[in-house]
Design a protein around this nucleic acid. Structure first.
Lengths: 242, 242
DNA sequence: GATTTTGATATGTGATCACACTTGCTTTGA
DNA sequence: TCAAAGCAAGTGTGATCACATATCAAAATC
């Protein structure tokens, strides 16, 4: 009967209605927490409680605890021996470790993408770049979240072109893990004044347009290394003063 | 008071009692499912149900559903649109994708490990190698599970030496994903007769002992490529006959 | 006889409850 | 005054229930 219903709807409503989807509450909670982590909305070492998050997200504890469990397995969160869960703290070893892994895997992904991204893909990332320029031109200073989102879209639009269903989830996991660090780095940027961040992205697009995998990899490494270098310096200077 | 109790126990019982630990049921279910997946105890495309697993593991549904959710996020299992969950099916693209990622990441890990693994680590992997030879010498043929476990211990004993808290979980995730494929490959091995699998492991140990990172990487790539090549050939021949 | 409808069973999801453990503060005793 | 004991609030874990949906086979209709 369902098949018949689907066929009838195909006949009559296909052009008018879009499928509504059946996203579960748990999926929404998971997505929301991911977004918050990648955007750096949580501080490193911050402790999260199931009931607290459930209240904040206006659901029950059930979807939250399953989402937290999933985030713990991908190392986006950390389970303490007390069974409480927190955002992993930043250490010098950890940011070096994360940067090395990101260079390795995202470098490979963009290297693959360079020969597979088509003119359509190039056009899409160029459009994102223009949109990003517009946001920066406004100099609102408070659109950090918007810039972070655009940066994420830019990178993942490229990575998607590598065509690897294995590498992309790993890159997402790495972004999830470095999200809280990036937040700290962004604040360091604000203090250190403006840097020409757009330059690296233009180099990446130029290399991709030329299908030059090696140049794309080099430009990408420079791009993702920059905030980590800032963060590293900041941590070291803080360690010296203590 | 707890502190006082701990101190008292320190005084009197420290030499006699070991800490009992507080592993949750969910952790045990998760470990058990991981073991089954890496060992290839589940077939590709096999559908798993929460209640079915809960009955098999003699627990309630709660720990199982959370463990399944965690395995789905690390792509060890797949969530169908029906909301049922299955072991990911094997495709030619997927095994190529998995092999490429494993070569990339495990190659990097062993390259780092080559300069960091000490004489103690070398001794440990050599001991594993000898144990493995003994198992093979018995020719029991039915100790496939034992060989799989030893192979896993051998590799991860090396990877642990790379000292990266980021890379190792990624490698675990890759093994989790390629577990069901490996099972198929092992059966292909049995049909194809014996191959000198120990040779690759000896090359790896020799390269590590010489602290030759490049040689270790090459030997490792040969080792992990072998079952994938078998599997690939088998899949292609099956595709031709259909 | 083939197709559709219908109903029973099975399954995932979310909510709620009970329990054990932790944590922080208050009270008690020296 | 200070440390130890005890109490109370908070938190994670596991079990159970209710409900919506999926699945599959039997029955009804053309």
């Amino acid at each position: 009967m369902h098949k018949a219903a689907a066929e009838r709807s195909n006949d009559v409503f296909a052009a008018q209605l879009a499928p509504v989807g059946r996203e579960t509450v748990q999926d929404r909670v998971y997505s929301e927490l991911r977004r918050a982590l990648i955007g750096g909305l949580f501080e490193p070492s911050q402790v999260l409680t199931i009931r607290g998050l459930a209240d904040a997200l206006v659901t029950s504890t059930m979807p939250v605890r399953e989402a937290l469990g999933r985030l713990i397995t991908e190392k986006a969160l950390e389970a303490l021996p007390n069974r409480s869960v927190r955002v992993p703290p930043i250490t010098l070893e950890r940011i070096d470790d994360l940067l090395r892994a990101r260079i390795l895997i995202e470098g490979e992904a963009i290297s693959l993408a360079a020969t597979r991204i088509g003119p359509r893909g190039i056009a899409t990332v160029e459009a994102l770049l223009r949109e990003w320029d517009q946001v920066r031109a406004l100099k609102h200073k408070k659109d950090i979240d918007r810039e972070v989102t655009l940066n994420q879209s830019f990178h993942f639009e490229i990575y998607r072109a590598c065509g690897s269903a294995v590498l992309i989830p790993m890159i997402e996991s790495l972004w999830l893990q470095s999200g809280p660090c990036i937040r700290v780095a962004i604040y360091a940027f604000s203090e250190a004044g403006e840097v020409d961040t757009a330059h690296y992205h233009r180099s990446i697009v130029a290399a991709l347009a030329a299908q030059n995998a090696q140049a794309a990899r080099v430009a990408l490494v420079a791009d993702i290394s920059r905030p980590f270098a800032f963060l590293r310096e900041k941590l070291q200077s803080k360690a010296r003063t203590e």
